[in-house]
Write a protein that binds this DNA or RNA. Structure first.
Length: 486
DNA sequence: TTTTGAGTTGTTCGA
DNA sequence: GTCGAACAACTCAAA
């Protein structure tokens, strides 16, 4: 039995480069069986949203063909991971399983149970860090706890972190003849209707797409990141790496190394502060994982329990208008439509639409969290939950309650050219800049000339800014009263 | 143990 | 038009 094969279990790490679990599996010198399990059945597991499944479909195709190029074959299986793994062990006689860790509580529990079961039956199980620069339990404050404020966390990372050497991809993955599900049978790509048609022009899922995107970013965006990052109307104002990172098609170490090298390469002419700001965004992702790891219910429960008393509104109509990009606020609507059309939204606009939902409409952040989870190709269990709570004010180190984004001035400031609104809300394209972010203020003859009929081809605002803002501030006052009374 | 300074991303108002 | 202050109070992290 000296040639018992080993299993490399791919999860949120769909890449061959810089993949510690894969490397360790290959380094055994034994035949490696690469496996991906679509697990929506294990207890407490949250299924991916529809947009993420679209991406997963393409990413698995890419990984699969890369493995075939190395003489192997990716084995696809569907079902609760534990029985699937057990069945595979029996079928293949594998002597070890390798994987990279994930950090959601239900997955940790599932994986721990699998590890125990494997060990009982004499099979080795090895897990690795394949998704984070620093795993959530590794960075502690001076007094031994985990950080709850970003800035000191960032300072600690920046002062101490240096990326390890890259891990090379295997040059062969000797064939296995284990049968695989057909990817097409999983129905990850939407049909009837295929709402994903708008996605394809924007994305190239898979490891090559990720590495190309990084390269493009280093050449075209990184050097001006700090000054452009809030401008959704400017191309390359952000990296666009988030969906690749969310699927593990590229490791954060690869990004960190490439950016640090670019900073030190004089020919690239990358100002240090611009690049450090970009790296800090990578560390925001890590900070979100710290919060998620220590607060497993982050996507459902208020981090700050005071918010359990928040007098949220319930309005199906308002929620629908927000989701569909029909709020009457051009900047909000542009963002929501960009999300629907492309599976992604610029970060500045995410804050604007999130503030609008939780403050102007006074709707619970979980509605937004769920919509984003379903619509974003980059949806991430930690970032999505932590960011929604941050905006709502219930999160760790959250925005102060009185910070209510004004969708009109935010639009004028960050969509200065108006290109963003004109692109995603074409019915307003002919409005002059002066009224683009507040069409209800335009005189009749201006609206007429631009072909805009408020209430007909573009909605009136569903809530007046001033009233919406005041209603939110009043709600926070009530919240405070409840807390003081308690 | 106590103290101190600080905390991603904003808005409004009045001088 | 520009600018600074007020908008709260609290918790965190480190000295």
């Amino acid at each position: 039995m000296s040639q018992r094969p080993v299993i490399c279990w791919f999860r949120r790490d769909l890449r061959l480069q810089d993949n510690p679990a894969l490397r360790a599996a290959v380094d055994t010198g034994l035949p490696v069986i690469p496996v991906y399990i679509l697990d929506e059945e294990s207890e407490g597991v949250r299924a991916d949203g529809a947009a993420k499944k679209w991406w997963l479909d393409k990413s698995l195709k890419s990984l699969s063909s890369n493995i075939e190029r190395l003489g192997g074959r990716l084995v696809l299986r569907k079902g609760a991971a534990r029985p699937v793994i057990e069945a595979l062990m029996e079928k293949t006689g594998a002597g070890a399983v390798f994987w990279n860790r994930q950090y959601e509580k239900p997955l940790i529990d599932r994986d721990t149970a699998i590890k125990d079961r494997l060990k009982e039956s004499g099979v080795e199980a090895h897990s690795f860090n394949g998704s984070l620069l620093n795993e959530p339990w590794t960075i502690e404050t001076g007094s031994g706890g985990h950080y709850k404020v970003f800035t000191p966390y960032w300072k600690a990372v920046r002062a101490n972190y240096s990326a390890p050497d890259p891990i090379v991809a295997p040059d062969t993955l000797a064939g296995s003849d284990v049968t695989s599900d057909a990817l097409a049978d999983w129905g990850l790509h939407p049909t009837r209707p295929d709402w994903s048609k708008g996605f394809a022009p924007f994305w190239r899922p898979g490891e090559e797409g990720a590495l190309d995107r990084l390269d493009h970013w280093l050449k075209n965006g990184l050097g001006a990141y700090d000054e452009r990052r809030n401008r959704p109307d400017i191309e390359n104002s952000t990296s666009g790496l988030s969906p690749h990172l969310a699927m593990g098609e590229i490791s954060p170490q690869t990004i960190w190394r490439a950016v640090r090298q670019a900073m030190q390469d004089g020919r690239r002419n990358i100002p240090e502060d611009q690049a450090w700001t970009f790296l800090s965004e990578l560390v925001w992702r890590e900070f979100s994982y710290v919060l998620l790891y220590h607060n497993p219910e982050l996507h459902t429960d208020n981090y700050n329990r005071d918010f359990n008393h928040m007098p949220w509104r319930c309005s199906e109509n308002d929620l629908k208008a927000w989701e569909m990009g029909c709020t009457g606020y051009p900047m909000v609507d542009a963002g929501m439509r960009q999300l629907w059309l492309t599976g992604w939204m610029h970060n500045r606009v995410r804050m604007i639409v999130a503030s609008f939902l939780t403050k102007h409409l006074l709707m619970h952040w979980h509605h937004g969290e769920e919509w984003f989870w379903d619509c974003l190709v980059d949806s991430d269990p930690a970032s999505n939950a932590a960011s929604w709570q941050w905006t709502a004010g219930s999160g760790a180190d959250a925005a102060p309650y009185f910070r209510v984004f004004n969708p009109i001035t935010q639009g004028a400031k960050f969509d200065e050219t108006g290109d963003y609104v004109r692109r995603f809300v074409p019915e307003l394209a002919k409005l002059p800049d002066k009224y683009l972010h507040a069409p209800w203020e335009a005189p009749d003859h201006v609206l007429k000339k631009a072909g805009v009929k408020l209430g007909e081809n573009y909605p009136h605002p569903i809530v007046a800014h001033k009233q919406g803002r005041q209603r939110a501030l009043d709600a926070y006052d009530k919240l405070k009263e409840k807390r003081d009374a308690a």
